[in-house]
């Protein structure tokens, strides 16, 4: 465990925190379900081809930065970020619903951007800053966005709710005062079955109007290379170009 201090990262249970430690070899009690303690792992000779290390298919050591804390795990390459969060770190706020990158219930922020945790390999999330709904607010001290969801009853069974909260967070971080059309566009990657969309858009609109979207949490944005190097950033504007948005498509 490379984290500072002894407190579990926000949102991580102490048990999960310790398990992370177990995997990293600090403890060797095999607490980490399904993943043998480091000592028990076969000392596989490091493979490489074309000068590139080949990892797996068995468990490999990985480090994730989750809700501001670094955790070390041993996982097979096929384990998704969602499964790592839910079954290895007991961060169950992100839900597994479609598991195919469509429904949005597993939405987390990776380097400040909303992504489907079911469609990112845990290995590929290394070096990124992962934020789950657990990082946003607690029952006692909800984030204003979460409070707005409660106020507007933007939830029923609640299974899609954490995903919607995170998608809305990403939207508001980028655009603190979205229009209704922009809210529809920004939350187009999330589905609800109980039919809570009416409350959700009221909740997000309230924050949009209040401009209170981002009072106490600014996502770190390390790592991600921005599309670079624009050698001539001022092209001629096309006169005849139609910029009208086609009908029958997304409204944002």
């Amino acid at each position: 465990m490379t984290s500072r201090g002894d407190d579990p990262p926000r949102g991580l249970s102490r048990r999960a925190f310790l398990r992370g430690g177990a995997a990293a070899g600090v403890l060797s009690t095999g607490l980490l379900r399904g993943v043998p303690p480091v000592e028990a792992a076969p000392a596989a000779a490091p493979k490489s081809e074309a000068g590139v290390p080949i990892l797996g298919p068995g468990p490999v050591a990985i480090k994730l930065r989750v809700n501001g804390q670094e955790v070390a795990l041993r996982l097979e390459p096929r384990v998704t970020l969602l499964d790592a969060l839910r079954t290895r770190l007991e961060l169950t706020g992100a839900k597994k619903v479609c598991d195919r990158g469509t429904c949005g219930a597993c939405t987390v922020l990776l380097d400040g951007k909303a992504v489907y945790a079911c469609s990112v390999l845990a290995l590929e999330a290394q070096g990124g800053d992962v934020r789950t709904v657990e990082s946003l607010g607690s029952v006692e001290r909800m984030h204003p966005l979460q409070a707005a969801f409660v106020d507007h009853d933007a939830q029923q069974c609640g299974f899609c709710t954490p995903g919607f909260v995170m998608a809305a967070k990403a939207l508001l971080d980028r655009n603190p005062s979205p229009s209704l059309a922009e809210i529809h566009h920004g939350l187009a990657g999330n589905f609800c079955r109980c039919g809570t969309y009416a409350g959700i858009r009221r909740a997000v609109l309230q924050l949009a109007e209040a401009g209170a979207a981002n009072p106490d949490y600014a996502p770190g944005l390390p790592g991600a290379p921005e599309p670079g190097e624009i050698e001539n950033p001022r092209p001629r504007r096309q006169k005849n170009k139609k910029r009208k948005k086609p009908r029958g498509t997304g409204d944002g």
């Binding site: 399904g34 169950t92 706020g93 709904v133 029952v139 909800m142 409660v150 939830q155 954490p162």
Partner: peptide, 27 residues
């Protein structure tokens, strides 16, 4: 009245069946 378990749901702390983890649990 706002639903009383709203904060638990919206913060991801509400534990659903899918979220239950028991010691030694098999899948």
């Amino acid at each position: 009245v706002s639903r009383l378990d709203g904060p638990a749901k919206v913060t991801g702390t509400a534990k659903y069946t899918y979220d239950v983890a028991r010691p030694g649990m098999l899948h």
